[in-house]
Design a protein around this nucleic acid. Structure first.
Lengths: 189, 189
DNA sequence: GTCTATAGGACGATAGAC
DNA sequence: GTCTATCGTCCTATAGAC
């Protein structure tokens, strides 16, 4: 494990604050206070408040993009691919719940990088949708409105960051299996 | 249908802006511009920006509370109760997606009314959890971690506001049925 | 690399004319 | 009920000393 640079520390502390109050409500003075320094000093390490948001959101968005590429690279069934995507979301949520919060609630405050982010998100959703649609075509998944299935799965997976911190230390494998069962097999007996 | 007062109009316009940028990023000058008036004039109808947020969030929170009370008043099975709660969330999301956005993303910016909101939300979640737990006890619902089921269902239902506007006019009954099938029966064939 | 000081503007809200 | 003018405060970011 490499030692955390001052810049990385600022970004980590800022993402925690962003999670609690949102990007717009967090001031550079808040970040500085949490870092035990003055706001002006932050600018020796980062270029702007906006640059912090970009760093947080784009790193995670690109992690989802490469995760999806790996899922699609394997020659698995559609249901197996959905299971792999559930594991991907759980892993990223466990590793960086604060960053995920910013991605989910503050992406609209991106400025120059907004279009790039939206493109990544759109591509990801299209790939997710195609897996579901293929599953329905091949009679592996129930013939329910693709958009409703996509929405339901993504809503749950995208909300993991809200819920994980409450659980203390989480057994990643157990959670992935429970979620897979609920999202794919349902809860009815 | 009673005629909308100027105050109600301001709150409706503000909730639309809050949905797009969040409470903190929306200024009273933004609200005034959208109303085609000057910021100072808003204060003849509302007491403060905070009062607008309170009105939006607490009205919806109380609607969920009374909806839950009605579900619990009927002598139905636990699975039937879950179906009724799905219908409740769909109805409120269709009626007021902008208000739901504020409730979901800006509740932490409530000031005096924060504790009251948190109490309503906590009570609602406890009732929801008990329905699931009773269903498991009575062998109607699969024996999966109650918290994971609760989280999964609430995540989907609470995200409806993000997704409904994309669908244009929604058939409320069809959506409720699709969601019920996915959330309760699963997607696997 | 941290500080003090401050530029330059936006913020919520009020006063008072009409 | 809407306006103009403005108060006092806070914002991001920079300049320059140490």
């Amino acid at each position: 494990m490499k030692k955390e640079t001052r810049k990385q520390e600022i970004i980590r502390v800022a993402s925690k604050l962003f999670k609690n109050k949102g990007y717009s409500a967090v001031t550079m003075r808040d970040v500085a206070k949490a870092m035990d320094m003055k706001a002006a000093s932050l600018y020796n390490h980062i270029n702007s408040k906006q640059a912090i948001l970009q760093d947080i959101i784009l790193n995670i968005a690109e992690e989802f993009t490469s995760g999806m590429a790996m899922v699609l690279a394997k020659d698995n069934s559609n249901v197996e691919r959905l299971n792999a995507l559930i594991a991907l979301h759980v892993r990223i949520a466990v590793e960086n719940p604060e960053g995920l919060a910013a991605l989910n609630t503050d992406w609209m405050h991106l400025e120059e990088k907004l279009d790039y982010y939206l493109q990544l998100r759109n591509d990801y959703e299209n790939n997710f949708r195609n897996i579901i649609a293929n599953g329905i075509e091949n009679n592996q998944i129930k013939s329910i409105d693709v958009e409703v299935i996509l929405f339901s799965m993504l809503s749950t997976l995208r909300s993991l960051y809200l819920w994980l911190p409450k659980k203390g230390t989480v057994n990643q494998k157990d959670l992935t299996e429970s979620l897979a069962q609920i999202l794919i097999e349902g809860i009815n007996k």
